[in-house]
């Protein structure tokens, strides 16, 4: 699939933790659009749906590993909201696998690997069912 687009809502604390400002900026694959959040607990269904509506083939939420949330339970709330939104996607007619939540630890995990995992899943599904169809302006 050409022009695959994946939106990643990333917790500031998980993704950037351990990355020194003197180091080069994180680089992302070209298909990845990263939206930084103060905490993954900021996510809700509207953010996720808006990404799909704007043309994303897949959306992922990246939060701290469980037990490491700077706001104690933001990542746990994020996971619950992702699960609820998956049900909503199912009702809408979009494959659940297009939305995923990842817990990430900068010190040990590889963000690139998470991106590739999501990319492969979305590639296998093909373009989003609402992509290239009429644009519904809100």
């Amino acid at each position: 699939m050409n022009n695959c687009k994946i939106v990643a809502y990333c917790c500031h604390n998980s993704l950037y933790e351990g990355v020194d400002s003197s180091q080069s900026a994180l680089t992302y694959p070209p298909y990845m659009k990263v939206v930084e959040l103060p905490c993954s607990g900021k996510i809700d269904a509207l953010y996720l749906l808006k990404a799909f509506e704007a043309g994303a083939d897949g959306v992922m939420v990246v939060g701290c590993s469980e037990g490491d949330c700077h706001y104690l339970e933001g990542n746990l709330r994020a996971r619950k909201r992702v699960e609820v939104t998956k049900e909503l996607l199912k009702e809408i007619g979009i494959e659940l696998e297009r939305l995923e939540m990842f817990n990430f630890k900068a010190a040990t995990d590889d963000f690139g690997q998470i991106c590739r995992t999501m990319f492969e899943t979305v590639q296998a599904l093909g373009p989003s069912p609402i992509k290239n169809k009429e644009t519904g302006a809100g």
């Binding site: 509506e53 069912p129 169809k133 519904g136």
Partner: peptide, 26 residues
């Protein structure tokens, strides 16, 4: 307000899955 916007977005997308167009005002 938040849930109203979410519902509107969900419906617009659900219509688009069928190849139809739905405009919403909230």
């Amino acid at each position: 307000e938040r849930e109203t916007d979410t519902m509107a977005a969900a419906l617009r997308m659900a219509f688009r899955v069928d190849g139809n167009r739905l405009e919403t005002k909230q």
